[in-house]
Design a protein around this nucleic acid. Structure first.
Length: 295
DNA sequence: GGCCAGGACTATG
DNA sequence: CATAGTCATGGC
């Protein structure tokens, strides 16, 4: 079995990222143990199962099956894990800024070393955001799990299923009724099938969006039916990794700020913009840490 | 049982 | 441009 090690810039805590990932482990896209993550990672020509472990200074990727994978597959896996856990980032500037901040000083201490765990797959990021619109997070997890187990594929290893997110072309060919059967609204079913078609017909791609400015990426995303400002910022934050992505319409973010500042009412989007002005270049990370205080 | 939830669309002044 | 109504379901 082969192990690949990725060195990491501090501050980093593998355990903090594990604790975060536990929140969504019911969706079945990975399995979490005490000190490890196991996941099937789809690449162009293979779907290896890896076990990820780590410390404060490195992450190890272990290919657990007794199989040989090409260098290209290994390269894609390293890329995926690095993007997923945001391993190439350096949080020191963020912590320096947050240390003196009334809202962030407590969270960065409590969750020291937590990365903005992302969703590298653009289709998955968009679907997850749409699924989560205007419903409780726990119901959103339920919907995603049904979606994955109905339309995704699983790789089995040692009697355990490791699910992969549904392929875009599979969903592009779904009927609205197939999706509403999972108890999502008809409108969400339309949105998700529409998004799948945008990607399949190559009018939308992560590669293209990454060449755009943050403003331009938001405009492209919000031109898609079902993608408003919240969803666009969510995807910019967790998939495209624009540092100033800032979903100010998010109820969770509004509540986090409300509780931490002991406000009577939830802050409005414009109030959040004013408040977050001091987090320039780290608004995405500030949002992620504020969300983390809620659960 | 009522209110809210990690919103977006559409119609209306 | 700002506001209200609609979608529609589960969770608490």
């Amino acid at each position: 079995m082969k192990t690949i090690q990725i060195p990491i810039n501090s501050p980093f805590s593998f355990q903090q990222n594990i604790e975060y990932l536990k929140l969504a482990s019911e969706v079945c896209l990975y399995e979490i143990g005490d000190q490890w993550i196991r996941k099937a990672i789809p690449t162009a020509h293979a779907i290896p199962i890896v076990e990820i472990t780590g410390t404060s200074s490195f992450v190890d990727i272990l290919f657990v099956e007794n199989k040989e994978y090409s260098v290209e597959v290994e390269r894609e896996v390293i890329q995926y894990v690095s993007e997923w856990l945001d391993l190439d980032n350096d949080l020191q500037p963020f912590y320096k800024l947050a240390k003196q901040d009334a809202l962030l000083s407590i969270p960065i201490d409590r969750f020291y070393g937590l990365r903005n765990v992302g969703i590298p797959n653009l289709f998955e990021a968009l679907c997850w955001a749409v699924l989560g619109q205007q419903i409780t997070l726990s119901f959103a997890y339920t919907l995603k799990k049904r979606f994955v187990e109905t339309f995704g594929t699983a790789v089995t290893w040692q009697g355990k299923d490791y699910w992969c997110f549904p392929e875009t072309d599979v969903i592009a060919h779904c009927t609205i009724e197939q999706l509403t059967a999972l108890q999502m609204t008809r409108r969400k079913a339309e949105y998700i099938i529409g998004i799948a078609n945008e990607i399949v017909e190559q009018r939308l791609s992560k590669e293209q969006l990454l060449t755009e400015s943050f403003d331009s990426a938001q405009k492209i995303l919000t031109s898609i039916r079902g993608v408003g400002p919240w969803t666009a910022n969510y995807v910019c934050m967790r998939c495209l990794r624009f540092p100033n992505a800032f979903p100010v319409g998010d109820v969770g973010l509004q509540n986090a700020v409300k509780y931490l500042l002991r406000l009577e009412e939830k802050p409005s989007p414009s109030q959040l913009h004013q408040l977050g002005a001091r987090w320039k270049n780290w608004q995405s990370y500030a949002t992620f840490y504020l969300w983390r205080t809620l659960y």
